[in-house]
């Protein structure tokens, strides 16, 4: 039992944090306006160029470093297709293009990142299939703070990959858990900054116990979720992965509510980026059937047949 990153992982996370914090140079955080989403083209390019998306395949970094990366990148207000590239793509074989859009169990409707995607990955119990894209996707308006797209999927030239669907499904659960816990952590940071500064009744909002206890509870849930996610990334066990995803999806609704409550009306405007985290969270909490399905996966893995 050793819950600190190894030396390589610690260096990886430190360098990544420096890159993400380099606001003046990269503009990852400051954008001209706070539209519903903003694809982080500059950030994406820099991560790819520096080889960050290949971490999972490196023995000394592995899926733990990749999951930590997804968690950190999810905290910036621009949106980047990181989760699938970091945690699935290294295990799909050579020459898989990115960005990578993912559809689980042939779920209907618009798909996150499809407008930017170089390929669409379909995960079902029976097969993992890949379709290379060439601008066929149609971008659609959405409440969710992601680029969303639709296309006629049955017309695509699907290629079945020689990978174990259960393994890829587990990795996707870990990736979603990492992204959702990161997205919520990013939202929490922005709200903490607000309640430290905003004064009402002569004192900072964040000094009221009614506010403190709810944000502290959210922090307890998120830190538990982060550790469950890292454990799942370390073991890659289906039971750990489903639990990590279920736990964070289960708490996402309440955390999102708290974040908007304490941001007040400002959180309902496009002048503040809170919606960029909370409306990513709304999309992610429903992925793969949401918390109930992930809980049922876990129950099956732990307790088997009824």
């Amino acid at each position: 039992m050793h819950l600190a990153f190894n030396e390589d992982q610690a260096t990886f996370v430190t360098v990544l944090a420096q890159m993400l914090g380099d606001e003046a140079e990269t503009g990852f955080h400051t954008v001209a306006d706070w539209g519903r989403f903003d694809y982080g083209t500059a950030l994406d390019a820099r991560l790819e160029e520096a080889g960050f998306y290949d971490a999972a395949a490196e023995p000394d970094l592995g899926t733990v470093a990749a999951a930590a990366m997804v968690h950190e990148v999810a905290q910036v207000p621009v949106t980047v297709e990181c989760a699938a590239s970091a945690l699935l793509r290294p295990f799909l074989g050579d020459d898989v293009p990115r960005p990578l859009a993912v559809v689980d169990d042939e779920a209907p409707g618009a798909i996150r990142f499809l407008p930017q995607a170089g390929a669409l990955l379909s995960i079902t119990d029976g097969a993992v299939r890949l379709a290379r894209l060439d601008g066929q996707a149609r971008e659609v308006d959405s409440l969710f703070a992601y680029p969303m797209g639709e296309m006629a999927r049955d017309k695509l030239d699907w290629q079945t990959l020689d990978v174990d669907p259960a393994t890829i499904r587990t990795l996707w659960q870990i990736a979603l858990a990492a992204e959702l816990s990161g997205v919520l952590a990013g939202g929490l940071s922005s709200v903490l900054a607000h309640v430290r500064e905003r004064t009402q009744f002569g004192q900072a909002l964040g000094s009221f116990q009614g506010v403190q206890h709810r944000l502290a509870t959210d922090a307890v849930w998120l830190e538990g979720a982060r550790l469950l996610m890292l454990k799942a990334a370390s073991s890659r066990a289906p039971q750990d992965a489903s639990l990590a995803l279920a736990h964070v999806q289960n708490h996402a609704t309440r955390i999102g509510y708290d974040l908007h409550q304490f941001m007040g009306a400002m959180g309902l405007t496009l002048e503040h980026p809170l919606h960029r985290w909370t409306y990513r969270a709304r999309a992610l909490r429903a992925e793969m059937g949401g918390a109930p399905m992930a809980f049922l996966d876990y129950a099956e893995a732990r307790w088997r047949a009824a």
Partner: peptide
């Protein structure tokens, strides 16, 4: 019933890891 059992398990395992971090 199965989902609620798993929800309780998630609370246990989150607590376990948070405590393990203290011990670590």
């Amino acid at each position: 019933v199965r989902a609620k059992a798993a929800e309780a398990a998630a609370a246990c395992e989150a607590a376990r890891l948070l405590v393990y971090r203290v011990v670590d």
